[in-house]
């Protein structure tokens, strides 16, 4: 690890000031990705701006048609939350399948979404459920949020404060874990809102993406059989030692069908 300075702001205003004071500051949320990256000297921030002591950044609020999760809420809290389990069970399941129990006790939804790791689970939920990402500056639709590998619509210094998930009529999430890291080799979330169906895929490409062909087919008939093979071409998918692009393309279809089956109970 290279050396760095530490800032421990306690309010969102302080966060902005701390970042402004730093030459090349970086937010530290749960640290479950960032700290290993720092250990390997793959990043060299001048300062870490810890979000752990910022007031009002943690907690879950259930409303009539949405559930709002503050950015520093840990995965374990989401997984165990009764409102989420009953209203958006696949979201609780997704959170409960991230990494391992220790990662879930530290990792945060805001950190995961801001990092936009191509193999992370949360982006599938944010995009699949059409959530709204709320920052200290504005609200960003999920469809406009994820812009590329490890890239988002967040401006320099913009901080996610909470994410609001609309409650779907039916939802399912199926993940095929990488055997070494338990990250998603492929993960598919399918959510149904009245006549709208959203399908989001993580792990398979450089960035989480929707599958319009599946969404159309499922809008016509919300059943596993609606999803034909080959709806997602392999060409643009990730190809690495853990899975070839054609295997990932195949898995998207299988997992999407299973996610629909799960959504249908």
């Amino acid at each position: 690890m290279y050396d760095f300075g530490i800032k421990n702001p306690t309010s969102i205003d302080d966060v902005k000031a701390a970042l402004g004071d730093a030459e090349d500051g970086q937010f530290l949320a749960g640290g479950q990705t960032l700290i290993p990256v720092l250990k390997q000297r793959l990043a060299m921030p001048s300062d870490l701006i810890s979000l752990s002591r910022v007031d009002g950044l943690s907690g879950i609020t259930a409303g009539g048609d949405s559930i709002s999760i503050k950015a520093m809420t840990r995965h374990a809290e989401v997984a165990a939350n009764a409102d989420i389990k009953s209203a958006i069970p696949a979201l609780a399941k997704l959170a409960g399948g991230i990494g391992d129990p220790h990662v879930r006790n530290r990792g945060t939804i805001g950190g995961s979404v801001a990092n936009n790791d191509p193999a992370a689970d949360y982006p599938a939920a944010v995009l699949g459920l059409g959530a709204t990402v709320i920052t200290n500056e504005r609200e960003i639709d999920a469809d406009n949020f994820f812009t590329g590998m490890f890239d988002t619509a967040l401006n320099e210094g913009e901080l996610i404060t909470e994410i609001s998930f609309p409650i779907p009529e039916a939802v399912g999430y199926i993940k095929f874990p990488n055997p070494a890291t338990r990250y998603a080799l492929v993960g598919v979330m399918v959510a149904k809102f009245g006549n709208t169906v959203r399908v989001a895929v993580t792990g398979a490409g450089p960035c989480v993406f929707r599958v319009p062909e599946m969404e159309q087919a499922l809008t016509a008939s919300f059943s596993p059989d609606s999803i034909k093979d080959g709806l997602v071409p392999a060409d643009d998918l990730n190809n690495d030692i853990h899975a070839s692009r054609e295997y990932r393309a195949h898995l998207i279809g299988v997992l999407a069908r299973r996610a629909v089956a799960e959504a249908n109970g």
Binding site: I6, L28, G31, Q32, I35, P36, H102, V103, N105
Partner: peptide, 10 residues
Amino acid sequence: VKSCAVFAWE
């Protein structure tokens, strides 16, 4: 927690 993924000052 994995103590190798938390800073002491945290």
